[in-house]
């Protein structure tokens, strides 16, 4: 399973154009978006609709958690479009995908227990990604995918869990690819938008 990992677009239209160009060229089985798709503001709902349309056009399944900057309208949108993972598990292939969005303070994920086929998606990276001492050994998902820290491009194995932090698509113009079952991760620079075919997204 080839999974696109894209985080922290923060209502950026360059990212929309680039995403469209990327999906014109490359195929994925699934896209995982660990939050901050939008910035709080009037255009958040317009942005998430355009974001969703890109995946819809390519018939690419995508799932997301909300970040600390996604407003309630965006959370409602994800929920009503059945794209949210926030405390809402989904089975895809042999894996269970589950997310905890926002600040993660409703229920800190590192206090939960997970089985070894779970891919946990959070907006915030776990404390363990910066300090091994804070990692709860009972919290052992197969993989934890996070964003939020725009400059963090990290892959770290702790116990049986692979922690992946995706750099920001807006600030760093980067995204990742996760391949299952190998758990291989690669990061790449998002392509320059093809402005000849994506003019509808330019403001």
């Amino acid at each position: 399973m080839k999974i696109l990992l894209l985080s922290d677009s923060h209502s950026d239209h360059w990212v929309l154009n680039s995403l469209k160009s990327l999906l014109d060229k490359e195929e994925f089985d699934l896209a995982i978006i660990p939050g901050d798709i939008t910035n709080r503001g009037l255009d958040a709902i317009k942005y998430i609709q355009k974001f969703a349309d890109i995946f819809e056009d390519k018939k690419l399944n995508w799932l997301a958690v909300h970040g600390n900057n996604d407003p309630d309208e965006v959370i409602d949108f994800l929920k009503s479009e059945r794209r949210d993972l926030h405390f809402y598990p989904r089975e895809i292939g042999n894996y269970k995908f589950l997310g905890i969005g926002g600040w993660g303070d409703e229920l800190p994920p590192y206090e939960l227990r997970f089985d070894q086929n779970t891919v946990l998606v959070t907006h915030f990276p776990p404390p363990a990604i910066s300090s091994k001492k804070q990692f709860n050994p009972a919290c052992q998902p197969l993989i934890q995918i996070s964003g939020h820290h725009h400059r963090w491009q990290k892959v770290q194995d702790i116990g049986s869990t692979r922690l992946i932090n995706i750099p920001g698509s807006k600030d760093e113009h980067k995204a990742g690819i996760l391949t299952l079952p190998q758990r291989q991760v690669s990061f790449f620079t998002l392509p320059k938008p093809n402005f000849l075919t994506t003019t509808s997204f330019i403001y």
Binding site: N61, E91, K96, L98
Partner: peptide, 8 residues
């Protein structure tokens, strides 16, 4: 529950 692709 968990949601499956058939639900979509």
């Amino acid at each position: 529950n968990p949601r499956q692709s058939i639900d979509d």
